[in-house]
Computed example of a mutant assay.
Amino acid sequence: MQQYQFLRTLCLFLMISSMVVYIQSECNKCQSNNNVACVNKTHYRFCLDNVEPGAILPCNDGEVCTSLAKICVPEGAYEPSCQDSEATTPNECPSCTASSLFVCTSRTTFQQCNGTTLTDRVIKCNEGKFCSMASGKYCVGECELTGDIECDRDAP
């Protein structure tokens, strides 16, 4: 009877383990299991043609973004696809430094720097373009992004 219970427990453990396949993804990379890209531990964007490419959505409180079919799951139930150390938080944006001429102030806008302060004029990228100072072009298409979105918020 004990051997039967042990085998039953072992089989149950193996079945559950085989259902939970750990796939560690990189930040901001589209995942084939759920068609989203986790931009950080708790936020994601869709990787679908008919969805606005810059829309970043949050998981509910206490949930993390994963590569599972259910995008957000309770923290601790599954490893997040993107660790916070790999990407910026959704509202974190670069600030002006003495060497900066411009900085991104949202996903689609940038502003000129005057030393370490921003000027008042907000410059908007064309439709479908994202702010990217790292590219050297200021505004680029999604495929041209050279890493994470530099300022991941809707508006300055």
Rank of each mutant, 00 (worst) to 15 (best):
T9H: 12
D154C: 07
R107W: 06
V140L: 00
S32E: 12
L57R: 04
D84S: 12
T116R: 09
C30A: 04
D61C: 07
A69Q: 10
T108W: 10
I71L: 03
I149K: 03
E150Y: 03
I56T: 11
S132T: 01
G76C: 00
D154K: 13
F13M: 07
T66S: 00
E92N: 11
Q5N: 12
L145A: 01
C65D: 04
Y138N: 13
Q2S: 14
V21Y: 12
A77C: 09
C93Y: 03
C113S: 01
E142F: 11
C151K: 07
T66V: 06
Q83W: 14
Q2H: 13
I149P: 00
L10G: 01
A69V: 13
E75L: 03
Q24I: 08
L7I: 10
Y4K: 10
T116G: 02
N91E: 11
I71K: 02
C131A: 07
Y78N: 02
K70W: 10
E92H: 14
S99F: 10
N35M: 12
M19D: 01
T119M: 13
V122A: 00
A37L: 07
N28T: 09
L145Y: 02
C72E: 00
T109G: 02
L145P: 03
C82P: 01
P94H: 07
G54D: 10
L7G: 00
M19A: 11
A134S: 15
T116E: 15
S95T: 15
A69R: 13
L57D: 05
C93R: 06
I56E: 07
C30D: 02
G147H: 06
T42S: 08
A77L: 15
C96K: 00
K124M: 08
M15H: 08
N33S: 13
A69F: 09
D61F: 10
E63Q: 15
G141Q: 14
D154S: 12
G147D: 10
K29V: 15
G128Y: 14
D84P: 13
A98M: 09
F110D: 00
A134I: 14
V73Q: 05
R107Q: 15
H43S: 15
C113V: 08
L145D: 04
T117Q: 09
T146R: 13
T105W: 05
S100F: 04
T89P: 07
I149L: 09
S106R: 05
D120Q: 11
E144R: 02
T146L: 13
V140Q: 01
C30K: 02
N60I: 14
